[in-house]
Each structure stands twice: as structure tokens, then as C-alpha cells.
């Protein structure tokens, strides 16, 4: 047998356990102590103290395939992903965005302009100005059409981390779960599914601003459930907050068509990626107030309280299906359609 050399696999990029391990084993070495939240915290971004405020910095690369999909495209994702990461740390007023693009020889200029237009529109929605960028072109086959990286910075007076849950806190999801991943998956695997499967990709900073205005210091933890889905976010929040999290499955908002597609492919919508949602942990006393504020926002009409933090089984996520309870495993690897 040939010698097997350790290699990076696709599973290392899909937001689950393998990816976390890779980051911990390889990149954590780069972390150095900072005044604030640095790389070591493995949060959505960093927060550095500047006077009596915090400078929040985050960066994100986008390699979504297909680059155009129902409900959005790689340009819209690149803006929303970064704006949302800032918002998850409490920084809802993005000060500036940067954009770096790597293009493959032969990429259509019309497509690039279409992507640019969609970046412009998304940035306007989020109130985030682009301030600098970088462009590289590589040979055919050296990248898949287009790779985009965006970095965002913002100032905030209070930082919300993903580690703030305490037993008794309630968790709110700001809308329907699984829209983005299902739309991408049905396109990517040529499943021949017809129906209204559209990505939810949107900047949620306005929505989060409304939640913070209503809940103040009682908003204690936030996470955007992108790769790894809501399940992935809850696992991180439970582990970092050293609490258990129990989900009431029937309270999780899922669109009919997403559930139908998920059932057909044997996939749990809780594991499917979202690009325009937030999981927000709130002290119980303020939960209704925050929920009402979210529901008053156009992107939060379907927000729901769907889970709570408990002191048992710290680090684990439990799903109460209404019939019984089970442990919800941490997502592993890319989601694939199943036969059994």
C-alpha cells in the first residue's frame, strides 16, 4: 500500500468538528495576547480596546459554488457574511469594508460586474462603505472562477461574545432555518428540485441593532448560524458558555419547502447553513421584549424563542422533539444527500 500523507480535506472547511480541530492544531499558534478578544477566543471576529470603545475586526473568504444561486450570489454573501460577523459581536454600525478578489483567467467580465452590483446593493443595505481592495488574476484551473475576501471593521461600546450563556437564558432564532444551504444544495447536486428554495442571504446588523436596543445588557450571546447551521452555533455557544442547551424542535421555524427538501434528502434543517439569521441568547426576563423588537423588523417577522440554556450536560445540545429527547451531534463535514 502507498504511504498516506495527511492532507486537508473538504471536511476541514465545513464548519464542524474537523474544521475546529484543524484551526486549533494549526492556526492557534498565531494567537498572541491582546487587550480584548483575540484569535485565541475563536469568536466571529476580534475586539480590540480603543479608548473607551472596542474596535471589532473580522475577515471572511468566499468560495461559494455555484456563484449565482436563487436569492443571491457570491458578492452578496461576501458583504453580508462580514457585516453579520461584526454584528454578532455587537458592532452593528460597520465603519469600513475591504474587498480582495482572486479571478481565474477567462472569467466573464459581465459576471464580475453583476457581482460588483450586488456587493454595492448589499453594502448600501447594511450601511457599510467599501474603502479599499485588491485584485489578482490566476491561471486557468488555479481557482474556481472567483474567490472573494472581505474584511470589516466597526466600533462599539459593548462587545457581545458567543460565550455569554448562563443557565436559564433563552435563545431566539431570528427567522426560518435552513433556507440558504437548501437552495445551494439543490443547485449544486443537480437534484432537479423545483420550488421556492431561496437563500436568505441578508445583512442582519439592523435586526441585531433592534434586538440590542430592546434588550440592552440582557442580550448575552450571539452567533450567526452559517456553516454547521443552528446546531453548529449552539454547540459552540454551549461549549464556550459551559451550559447545556435544550431545543424545543416544534418551535424552530422551518419553511414547508425547506422541510420537504430536507426530508427527501435525509438532512436535518438544524444542520443546514443560513446567511441571514442570528441565534441570540437573552436573559429570560428580557426575552419577550427582544422577540417583539425582532418581529417588528422586516427580517425578523418569523423570529421565535426556540431553546434555553440549562445547567445539566454542559457543552451538549439536546433536542426535545415533543416525543422524546436526544443529543444533537456536532455537525461533521459537508452535508450530502442520503439514501438511508
Amino acid at each position: 500500500m502507498e504511504k498516506v500523507v495527511q492532507k486537508i480535506g473538504l471536511k476541514h472547511g465545513s464548519g464542524g468538528r474537523a474544521m475546529r480541530q484543524l484551526i486549533e492544531e494549526v492556526f492557534l499558534e498565531l494567537a498572541s495576547p491582546v487587550d480584548g478578544i483575540g484569535l485565541g477566543a475563536l469568536d466571529d471576529g476580534a475586539a480590540l480596546r480603543v479608548g473607551d470603545q472596542w474596535l471589532v475586526v473580522t475577515t471572511d473568504s468566499h468560495v461559494v459554488h455555484p456563484i449565482f444561486f436563487p436569492g443571491g450570489d457570491i458578492g452578496r454573501i461576501s458583504v453580508c457574511g462580514t457585516v453579520n460577523d461584526l454584528a454578532m459581536m455587537g458592532a452593528t454600525e460597520p465603519m469600513a469594508l475591504t474587498c480582495a478578489v482572486i479571478l481565474e483567467d477567462g472569467f466573464l467580465r459581465a459576471d464580475l460586474e453583476r457581482i460588483r452590483d450586488s456587493m454595492k446593493a448589499a453594502a448600501a443595505e447594511a450601511g457599510a462603505p467599501f474603502v479599499t481592495g485588491d485584485t489578482k488574476v490566476v491561471g486557468k484551473g488555479e481557482c474556481d472562477g472567483i474567490f472573494l475576501n472581505t474584511t470589516g471593521v466597526a466600533l462599539t461600546r459593548r462587545v457581545v461574545t458567543d460565550a455569554g450563556l448562563r443557565p436559564g437564558d433563552l435563545l431566539i432564532i431570528t427567522g426560518h432555518v435552513g433556507d440558504h444551504g437548501m437552495a445551494i444544495m439543490s443547485k449544486r447536486h443537480d437534484l432537479g428540485l423545483q420550488g421556492d428554495l431561496r437563500s436568505d442571504v441578508a445583512p442582519v446588523n439592523g435586526l441585531v441593532r433592534a434586538a440590542l436596543a430592546a434588550g440592552g445588557d440582557d442580550v448575552v450571546a450571539m452567533k450567526d448560524p452559517t456553516r454547521g447551521g443552528v446546531a453548529g452555533s449552539l454547540h459552540e455557544m454551549a461549549a464556550k458558555g459551559k451550559v447545556g442547551v435544550i431545543i424545543e424542535e416544534q418551535a424552530v421555524p422551518v419553511r414547508d419547502q425547506v422541510r420537504a427538501a430536507a426530508d427527501m434528502l435525509g438532512i436535518d434543517p438544524l444542520l443546514v447553513a443560513n446567511e441571514g439569521k442570528a441565534v441570540i441568547g437573552v436573559r429570560a426576563a428580557s426575552a419577550e421584549k427582544v422577540l417583539a423588537a425582532l418581529r417588528a423588523h422586516p427580517l425578523g417577522r418569523h423570529a421565535a424563542i426556540f431553546a434555553r440554556a440549562i445547567d445539566e450536560r454542559p457543552g451538549s445540545v439536546i433536542l426535545d422533539t415533543g416525543l422524546g429527547k436526544r443529543l444533537l451531534a456536532e455537525p461533521e463535514g459537508e452535508l450530502l444527500p442520503r439514501i438511508c
Binding site: 436559564g168 435544550i246 445539566e312 443529543l327
Partner: peptide
């Protein structure tokens, strides 16, 4: 392997 045994979740969440 994942859960260190067969977890019994009957009572979880009731106490808190």
C-alpha cells in the same frame, strides 16, 4: 464513543 455511553435523557431539562 461520542457520548460516553448510552445517554439517558428522560429527565434532562426538567430540573432547571
Amino acid at each position: 464513543h461520542t457520548y460516553g455511553g448510552a445517554p439517558d435523557l428522560r429527565a434532562v431539562g426538567a430540573a432547571s
